[in-house]
Design a protein around this nucleic acid. Sequence first.
DNA 1: CTGTTAGCGCCTTCAA
DNA 2: TTGAAGGCGCTAACAG
Lengths: 340, 340
Amino acid sequence: MVSMKEIAAICQVSVGTVSKALANQPGVSSETGERIRGVASRLRYRPNALVRSIQNGRSMSVAVACNAVEDPWGGMVLRGVLAGLCEAGYEALLLQWDWQVRSGEHMLRSMGERRVDGVIMFPPATPPTPAYLHELRTFPGPVIVLDQQWSRQEFHFVGTDDRLGTLAAVAHLRELGHTAIGCLHAPEVSTGVVRLQAVLEAMRRAGLAVRDHWLAPAATFADALAAASRLLTQADRPTALLCFNDEVAWGALNAALDLGLRVPADLALVGFADLPLAVQVRPPLTTVRQPKEELGRQGVRLLLERIAEGERQGLPLTPAQVLLPTELVVRHSTGPAPQR
Amino acid sequence: MVSMKEIAAICQVSVGTVSKALANQPGVSSETGERIRGVASRLRYRPNALVRSIQNGRSMSVAVACNAVEDPWGGMVLRGVLAGLCEAGYEALLLQWDWQVRSGEHMLRSMGERRVDGVIMFPPATPPTPAYLHELRTFPGPVIVLDQQWSRQEFHFVGTDDRLGTLAAVAHLRELGHTAIGCLHAPEVSTGVVRLQAVLEAMRRAGLAVRDHWLAPAATFADALAAASRLLTQADRPTALLCFNDEVAWGALNAALDLGLRVPADLALVGFADLPLAVQVRPPLTTVRQPKEELGRQGVRLLLERIAEGERQGLPLTPAQVLLPTELVVRHSTGPAPQR
DNA sequence: CTGTTAGCGCCTTCAA
DNA sequence: TTGAAGGCGCTAACAG
């Protein structure tokens, strides 16, 4: 890589002049300016962004921490994150924090040393370790957490309004006449807890019972397949299942079909997220759509705002809490409740 | 962020001494060393990695360029890439090159200015623009392309042996008695071309005809749904379809089921990749497994080798060409050919 | 118009 | 054992 110094030597001028010429600043004769720019472009001169970062204390980069890049849901959020960063001229340093070799806190520390201007993390399926949490708390720059609520909202947060989304889903099922509504929930993650609570709340308000054996934990396709198989072979089975997400709904769908149940005639299914698979399975899933890409964009927006404010290291006094609206998308996995 | 200078001031020593103390180098009395390290840790001193990068001309970071982070296939490759980089202590700068705001070549240039040590790009569904290609050619550091073969192999390349994989798939179908084998291919991408050629080659060698109306382009689920619907409603329809990938196979599967065809009794389907969905659809897909994570790891390995060699900017004299083996995974979407 | 100087944060070499 | 100086690539404020 050629440096200004070399260009200066070649052009027989000082580095300062080269600097001005390349920045098209006044104070350089158009003649020497042209000459310098000519040499620079011929030699493929590229300014060193690292140096610039050092000088003005802004690296124009942020760390994006995720724990499963291959997750389709996360992929869509990541798309939004990248879009937002790109538009703002920021670079994304991607890190996955579930490796063996270098632990998450290790990598996070590296990011700090690389002087990223902030961190945006998502979607943390497993709660972070204390060490990781500590690193996050002492991180030099704002931290945004997407989707999951951790440890009493100490970080800035952007998520979706899971409660309202779930209530809408339950309302939809009730309009269809369902009273025996079960739930494949995910107790390990905060969104899972919120969604289950919302179901229970809605049912309680409607004066409907939720039997324990209509509930089962299931956070993945495989979980759901097994759990739904058990749940649906009971004598007293629900006529509708609210699932933690679309993958879980898909697993439940397969279980139902395997058991010879028709969906939605015998069993109504509702997913959450509205992933591409929702329209690819048969029947297409009724689901609570989350604005996934928007989630990423809003996270970035919040982060850049905080960066611009020059937020001090350490925790914010009043962390922002943003909830994006969801939308119930009715497709063909839900229908009128079967007559008893 | 505290700097060495500040620590030096506080400890009443020179920066040089602080430098040595923090690096645990000899030449500092254990007493002052302790004092300095104490202050540093209390003030949360973090070395500035950017400075280090400038000094030794290695940024320990590479650019990872992809064009669809939400793509499941790419996600699994990306996982391998991140794993490889992480193990080697490298950081990943993620960039997506299909935005409106800043074009791919723009972003790539930014990466160069940020002094990344190399580029790894995947999976380029659409061929790059001339401008992008130019930026890639003149990139200061080695460039690795994954999966897709571009423009006469001018870059280092790691992919899978699609030809052998496809031949194995065809052989499997022939063993099952299939002779009317069609193909949903993807003419836009190099892997699509290779796979179709392999099908044609296998059929030719077997003395079997491939009718034009057994072939249709389809690169996505939606494409496949439409194409397969048309293809399967013909009087003379194939009894087996080799699909460009698992998503395409899924689309074809749905089309077949919609038409009342049983899979595999009436129609055999073979996918490519072995994504999670392959075991989630009914029936589970027979497919050609690609070592996706390994693909990413090998790409990184190759890249780091080239970096270590200190490869000059510009194109390599003899770009490496690595093909990873595939493996046919037989599940339930293929079965004996129907009797005529 | 051009050159010099100082400084960003750090490391390395050499002198005290 | 410690300090000072030079340099990495660049910018900004001055001096010539």
